[in-house]
Design a protein around this nucleic acid. Structure first.
Length: 196
DNA sequence: GTATGGATGGACT
DNA sequence: GTCCATCCATACT
């Protein structure tokens, strides 16, 4: 059970998260709870992207697609991946053009709706990947540019958890930058982390 | 105007 | 492990 938190404290903790460098925010986000219209769960896997990072959509500079990544921290950046899937980022950072990709959630709220949207029941397959997560939470380009600190989104701090680190998934540039973060031992990761 | 290449997931061997 | 569906921003001609 989450302890009650005042609106002022929530706003302060969100602001501190959003304005941290994206790789710090990505690590801190592990264990927070995200819901969209009441559907969601605990964030268990993230990746960080930075404008100076060749793997980032913002590396070539501002464009129509990545414009939201230059919005103030707390904005939601959604893009289509491989022509099929949606991927959801939270704009974070001490400089513009950086964000945290949400890769996996441990589903806790709205399991039935998530299962219906995904067309399957297994909780481990509902949100274990960036495309799956967006499908389960009903996130698409329609949510691009909205803010995570306003409805239909909710973002709440969780207890500190043990976090593991590894290289990011599916990229072709800056492959070795260890900016993927996950909750140690979680069964809801998109892929295991390499043993350290 | 056309060409290209993904921050993926699911089906299959 | 391999294969590939399918879209759009971007980089060309």
């Amino acid at each position: 059970m989450l302890s009650p938190i005042s609106p002022a404290e929530l706003a302060a903790r969100q602001a501190a998260l959003f304005t941290a460098p994206s790789h710090v925010a990505a690590k801190r986000l592990i264990g927070w709870t995200l819901r969209v219209d009441g559907v969601g769960g605990r964030i268990v896997e993230t990746e960080a992207y930075h404008y100076s990072d060749p793997a980032s959509h913002t590396f070539p500079g501002p464009t129509a697609r990545n414009a939201v990544m230059f919005d103030p921290p707390g904005a939601i950046y959604v893009y289509r991946s491989y022509g099929i899937h949606w991927c959801m980022n939270l704009v974070c950072g001490d400089e513009p053009g950086s964000a945290v990709l949400l890769r996996a959630i441990e589903p806790t709220d709205g399991l039935d709706l998530m299962a219906a949207r995904r067309g399957l029941e297994d909780p481990r397959l509902l949100c274990s990947g960036p495309g799956r997560l967006c499908q389960a939470l009903g996130v698409s380009i329609a949510q691009n540019g909205l803010r995570v600190d306003a409805p239909p989104f909710e973002l709440l701090p969780g207890p500190a958890v043990e976090v593991v680190v590894g290289p990011r998934i599916g990229i072709t540039k800056a492959v070795e930058t260890p900016w993927r973060f996950g909750e140690k031992g979680s069964r809801f990761l998109s892929k295991p982390f390499p043993k350290t």
